[in-house]
Design a protein around this nucleic acid. Structure first.
Lengths: 342, 342
DNA sequence: TAAAATTGTTTAATCGATTAAACTTCCGTT
DNA sequence: AACGGAAGTTTAATCGATTAAACAATTTTA
């Protein structure tokens, strides 16, 4: 590898000090610097194809122009789409994104945060896993800029960008009720993530407001462990009750995916025998024979907002910004009372 | 932000020089260092919660323990899955991954490479876009370690990890022919990427070996621009010919996705009216009413191999490793001659 | 017992940039 | 002519770690 060109090389060639070169290339002290030398420095820099050594700069300035992104799983389309949006937005401001997947595991999350801080990221965008509130509080105490995305802790005054999960769930379930479905169940995860609780709360509220008496066994909460089996079991149970549910809300795309596969395998007719509605968007929903009604999250807005809030926060802005965006209910065949003709 | 603890702080507290502290914490000169001081240094380091400043270390050692990953689009499940695997594998060796999407655009790709080199990544894993061979050669000249993934340039002696695309396509098309389909078309991209050409070649070879006379208009190559419209148009044409195709090979998951949506919308019966077979895997294929036959790429192996080859290469290993893995044909309903009963 | 070798530790240069402060010139003003 | 200030540039410290080389103290060897 041919040695990289440094400030010193330019300084030597032009016959000035490195300080002057630095000032010129960073456009500082503009008014004080001789026009002619400045030009010569600039030319030489171009000629030698000089590139700032960002490592050295970072060491001095304590800034890396890097942001860390921690999601549950980068291979989940929800998060990879977000990652893409954040990447593009960060790039606009010359930031680079490093990423890591927490696997919804507090230990891994902690390790990732550590690694990223060790690498001196300027800030973090985090979709916090369960039981990581301690890590978040610790970031806050250390005054490290960060923004929570997708999930957050209501008891914690931090930047966040997320859905209004209550409203979104409410809207979806209300739609089901309005269509005439009267036994509306839900499959969600058995964990304490606030946004999932909100979705549950929205579901319950919509049932209530629709005059539907909620039955306890309409709700299935799947625990940690393999999702596939748990979802299949839950579906099985929900449909084999004396009075089975006639509609289902899935709390995430992963749950929906497994459920739909099983529904396909069992030959259950959607929406005639069972209407289905899911959170999140994925291309897969379009390919299901009865295209899925789903709650679309405004990913573009979320990703951009999170990035901008983070960058503002890095810029020594101390105010806290909390954004809850509204989900859009995309109504399609899977929740239709009269699906008949295509 | 409370000031970070530095070597100096430890040195001061223990009453030794920073050199000694550095030696101890890096386990260098083990035999020369007093056991008792070493222990005191280690204790103090732990006590003060010392973390190496990686920026400073990088500046001195010229190593960042970072690898750059450039894919076409991180939000494409194919690439995000790869990214996840690479992330996990890199983590095992304490490397961090930074990523960027080239959008199949040579300019963007060049810019990303630049940004990553500027940040002194130790090496790159790249799914090269069309017309980026120049960038690749330039990396090679600069002796920068890199591995191409998914695609490569056969005329270029570089590390790569990819599918044996010819064989994979051949296998798939042969399967179609064996099932009795005799008018087997293909939709691919109209670009010069070697792996796509190989897929085309495999398709042609399988046709030939199956005694099928290839008709020119069975092939649709979609150009740059919006994929959706192009795929729909291609499908339309392929099916409205006097003698329409009875089976189709899609060269990528994106093409397949758009095609399947259109097939759904048009009410075309798969596989009765049209058998379909696609490259790549995505959950969406499972939800199509006739689960898709597809060519599964061994992503896990690919990602791990790419990462390991890169790390070896970073470790001053000059040999070139080229890996072409075999795809697995996952046969399901979409290519069945007797789909009847489920 | 003097020279040589070993052991334990420090000195100081270095990586490449940033930047406050100091230092020359030169000019205009009084 | 002397002084103040502006203009243009350099000096030198600094960020935090790494590491070859030097040094001092002790032990071994001949």
């Amino acid at each position: 590898m041919t040695k990289r060109v440094s400030l010193k090389d330019i300084a030597q060639k032009v016959g000035v000090s490195t300080a002057l070169v630095s000032y010129v290339l960073n456009n500082k002290k503009q008014d004080r610097i001789g026009k002619e030398v400045a030009q010569r420095i600039r030319n030489t820099a171009k000629e030698l194809n000089y590139r700032t050594n960002l490592i050295a700069r970072s060491l001095k300035t304590n800034k890396t122009f890097t942001i860390g992104l921690i999601v549950a799983d980068i291979s989940n389309p929800y998060f990879s789409s977000l990652a893409r949006i954040i990447e593009d937005e960060a790039d606009k401001y010359n930031y680079t994104v490093v990423f890591g997947s927490s696997d919804e595991d507090a230990l891994k999350s902690g390790k990732l945060i550590d690694v990223f801080l060790n690498r001196h990221v300027d800030g973090l965008i985090i979709a916090p896993a369960e039981d990581t509130i301690g890590q978040i509080l610790s970031l806050q105490q250390q005054d490290i800029p960060f923004v929570l995305i997708d999930r957050y802790f209501p008891e914690c005054k931090t930047n966040h960008v997320a859905l209004d999960d209550f409203k979104a769930a409410y809207k979806g379930v209300k739609h089901l009720a309005d269509q005439g479905f009267s036994r509306i169940g839900m499959i969600t995860y058995n964990n304490g993530l606030f946004n999932l609780l909100e979705r549950k709360r929205g579901w319950l509220a919509a049932l209530k407001d629709s005059g539907i008496a909620f039955k306890k066994n309409w709700l299935r909460e799947i625990g940690p462990g393999p999702v596939k089996q748990a979802v299949e079991k839950a579906l099985q149970e929900l449909l084999s009750m004396p009075q089975p549910v006639d509609a289902l809300l899935f709390a995430s795309n992963t749950i929906a995916l497994h459920a739909l596969k099983h529904i396909n395998a069992m030959g259950i007719k959607v929406p005639q025998e069972l209407a289905v509605l899911s959170f999140d968007e994925t291309e897969a929903f379009d390919l299901f024979y009865a295209p899925l009604t789903y709650i679309r999250q405004p990913l573009q807005e979320m990703g951009q907002a999170a990035t901008r809030i983070l960058l503002e926060s890095i810029g020594r802005n101390n105010k806290i910004t909390q954004v809850n965006l509204e989900g859009e209910l995309v109504i399609r065949q899977s929740t239709s009372r009269n699906p008949g003709k295509r």
